[in-house]
Amino acid sequence: MELFHGFSDILTLIGRGEMKHGKRHRAEVSRSLPQWERKFLAYKALKRKLKLTNPNSNGRNRVRSGNLPTQDMGFKQSLNREIDKVNTFYLDKEEDYIIMLRELESRAENLNGNDEEMLELRRELLDFYSEMVMLLHYSVINFTGLMKIVKKHNKRAGGAVQSSYMPRVLQQPFFSTELLYNLIRGCEATLERLSPPNDP
């Protein structure tokens, strides 16, 4: 039984344009786990902040109002805060999932043959599995939003943010999904052990 088809499949959807800023998947996550709604990258707020920076035209900054370095610094500070927020939430969830998987695996190993208890454990494992997959979507949605807002900044004010941020983005904890991927596989393995012999 293999329920999860891999992180690369979700990234492929982005490449095909089937996840325009992840709106559909974000709606799915928010509907299933509404308490996560405020934990996403605040894309719209960053976009509003970006509009306060002066555009770069023909290599020259056209100053409309205020001070460009101050405005640009404000955008970067907001972007850093959003990245920190997403990282904190993601890492906290990973830590919770490590503990939860150990507890569920321990219960699976100590089942006494009670069918009702086994069915309840399978339901809990499936719910747990679904939430971990949601966290994977959360990672991709935030990465997509971050890429998009940095690209918008690059077009408006030059490439400084893109060149300095993109190497960092690829190393952010919320985009380093190997541990989460392993937890998902571990959950699948436990579900497999609890599946009846004739279960497809």
Rank of each mutant, 00 (worst) to 15 (best):
A42Q: 12
N54A: 08
D115Q: 02
N110I: 06
S8V: 14
L33P: 01
L146E: 01
S57D: 13
Q71M: 00
S195N: 09
L79A: 05
Q77P: 00
L191P: 01
L111H: 00
Q35S: 14
L136K: 13
N54L: 09
L119D: 07
V29I: 15
L194V: 13
H5V: 12
N56V: 10
I149C: 03
S164K: 07
L126A: 12
E120L: 09
A160K: 10
Y90R: 03
I99G: 10
L119M: 14
L146R: 02
F89S: 05
F175E: 05
L33I: 12
P196D: 10
S78F: 04
I184Q: 02
E94Y: 04
I184K: 01
I10C: 00
M100G: 08
L50I: 02
G158K: 05
R38G: 15
G59E: 03
N87M: 07
L136A: 14
D115F: 09
L125I: 04
E188L: 11
P196C: 09
T12L: 14
V86E: 00
L126H: 12
N110E: 05
P34L: 06
S139M: 03
S139I: 02
L50M: 03
S57E: 14
E178R: 12
E2D: 12
P173L: 04
L126M: 15
F174W: 02
N67H: 07
G66W: 02
N61R: 11
P167D: 08
P196W: 15
F143Y: 04
Y97A: 12
L52R: 10
D115R: 04
S163C: 03
T190F: 06
G186R: 06
S57Y: 14
N112C: 14
H21C: 05
M147Y: 08
N114E: 09
P167Q: 12
F75Y: 02
K148Q: 11
I149D: 01
F4G: 11
K93R: 13
Y129E: 09
R24Q: 13
V63I: 14
L119G: 06
G74N: 03
E28D: 10
E117R: 07
A160W: 05
F75W: 04
R48N: 05
K47D: 15
K49H: 05
N80D: 12
G186Q: 02
R38H: 14
R62Q: 15
A27D: 04
M132E: 01
G22E: 05
E188D: 13
